[in-house]
C-alpha cells in the first residue's frame, strides 16, 4: 500500500476531506483527531491491518507519520 493510499484511508477514518492530511502534520493540531476518532482508528487498524493498538501506543502518536508507520 502506498503512502498516498494510507493517507486516504486515514482521512476516511477521521472523516476528513481527501488530500487534507500530510505525514508531518502534528496530531494535536488536527481537530478531527478527537476521542471518537481514536476509537475509529483502533477499529480500522484491526480490521485492515490486523494491528491491535494499545492505549499506550495511541498516546505515543505525535504525528500522522507515527500512525502511517503502524499501517503495515
Amino acid at each position: 500500500m502506498t503512502e498516498k493510499e494510507k493517507l486516504a484511508m486515514l482521512e476516511e477514518t477521521l472523516e476528513m476531506d481527501e488530500g487534507t492530511l500530510a505525514p508531518e502534520m502534528k496530531l494535536e493540531n488536527i481537530d478531527e483527531y478527537n476521542s471518537m476518532a481514536k476509537l475509529s482508528l483502533i477499529v480500522m487498524m484491526d480490521d485492515e491491518f490486523g494491528v491491535k493498538l494499545s492505549s499506550a501506543e495511541i498516546k505515543g502518536f505525535k504525528t500522522v507519520e507515527d500512525i502511517l508507520a503502524k499501517m503495515n
Binding site: 476521542s35 481514536k38 476509537l39 483502533i42 493498538l53 492505549s55
Partner: peptide, 9 residues
C-alpha cells in the same frame, strides 16, 4: 476510554 474500547471489541 481507548483501553476499555480495545478490550471490549
Amino acid at each position: 476510554g481507548t483501553a476499555v474500547f480495545s478490550f471490549s471489541i
